[in-house]
């Protein structure tokens, strides 16, 4: 990692207040992303990856809130900025794409207008000028006949087209960081690849860093240079994408990798069944003591059940949070 990081998260804790008590939905979350870098956050639903993203962009809403930690963007702490200052960053320098392109767009507003809003909000453009820029933005995400499409409503577009519109909105102001939360999960497999390719190319052209969030380790490793795996509110391993497949260190990551189907692997391994991880993800309110993976871990020992493992630096590069990592 060279140069000052674009975004730096240090020991972030996100609290869930259910009225009577507070529980940490995520804790000890630390990572950094450099300018133009691609970084992935992987985990099962409920592991805290999405709320971590919402915390970065300042969109946590009660009952969720930032309990502790620092988020540094471009060298400045942003977690305590006033609402107005956060709004200036949001959309302009940090943008986000959501999972459901069906519901993430306003059904009663033309898509052109929903893109144009960005230029009015952040670039001080008039609506007329903003509408012209919206056509350009739509063209840049390869939507055919953009000058006609700007007048369409979301329900008139296919899922893939809608997600292109979302990308156009997110990249409209040339942000430094794009957070993509399961951007292709709701799409057809064939469309998925196109959208991912488009997003990666556009961000590469503009030097926009990507924080990609997904449950799909294979997809993330494909897109991102580095990957962090989250389990039950904690990051358990952070590695280069190639390394994480070749030599996963945390038992949970190993489980994830083993559960992935791989092209060409049948030749090497024979007709073996895909492995799954036994047990279930614990609920936020009943995280186990010690390492939170211990009830499902085949290597678990007494220490795993009592003491929270520290994050260790791996010799091969990367970080892992396990008492027994190889």
């Amino acid at each position: 990692m060279t140069g000052a990081p674009l975004i730096e998260v240090e020991d972030l804790r996100i609290d869930l207040d259910d009225g009577s008590r507070r529980v940490a939905a995520a804790e000890g979350v630390s990572f950094r992303i450099s300018r133009g870098e691609t970084f992935g956050l992987v985990g099962e639903s409920g592991c805290g990856k999405s709320i971590t993203a919402l915390a970065l962009i300042g969109l946590l809403r009660p009952p969720l809130s930032i309990g502790a930690g620092v988020i540094r963007f471009d060298g400045k702490e942003i977690q305590h900025l006033s609402a107005a200052r956060q709004r200036d960053l949001r959309g302009d320098r940090i943008a986000m794409i959501f999972q459901e392109p069906m519901t993430a767009l306003n059904p009663v507003s033309p898509v052109g207008r929903q893109i144009a809003e960005m230029f009015v909000l952040h670039k001080g453009k008039s609506w007329r000028e903003a509408n012209r820029l919206a056509v350009e933005a739509l063209a840049s995400v390869r939507v055919p006949a953009p000058e006609r499409r700007v007048n369409d409503y979301p329900h008139q577009l296919s899922g893939g087209m809608r997600q292109r519109v979302m990308i156009a909105i997110a990249l409209a102001c040339g942000p430094d960081l794009l957070i993509a939360d399961e951007p292709t999960t709701a799409l057809d497999v064939t469309v998925q690849a196109e959208i991912i390719e488009l997003m990666r190319n556009l961000c590469a052209e503009r030097g926009t860093a990507i924080l990609m969030i997904s449950h799909d380790l294979g997809l993330v490793a494909n897109v991102c240079r580095r990957v962090a795996v989250m389990y039950a509110g904690r990051i358990v391993e952070e590695r280069g994408s190639a390394d994480i497949f070749r030599k996963p260190s945390h038992p949970y990551t190993q489980g994830l990798v083993d559960s992935l189907p791989r092209l060409g692997s049948r030749a090497a391994l024979g007709r073996s069944r895909l492995k799954e991880i036994a047990g279930v993800v614990p609920a936020i309110t009943s995280f186990p003591d010690g390492c939170r993976f211990n009830p499902r871990c085949v290597h678990a020992t007494d220490i795993c059940r009592t003491i929270v493992p520290e994050t260790d630096l791996l010799e091969a590069g990367g970080l892992v949070r396990c008492h027994h990592h190889a």
Binding site: L59, D88, A95, F98, T103, A104, P107, M118
Partner: peptide, 14 residues
Amino acid sequence: TADFVRTARSKGMS
């Protein structure tokens, strides 16, 4: 509580 309102907020709207 709709998703598109979250999108609107993510745009940096008051």
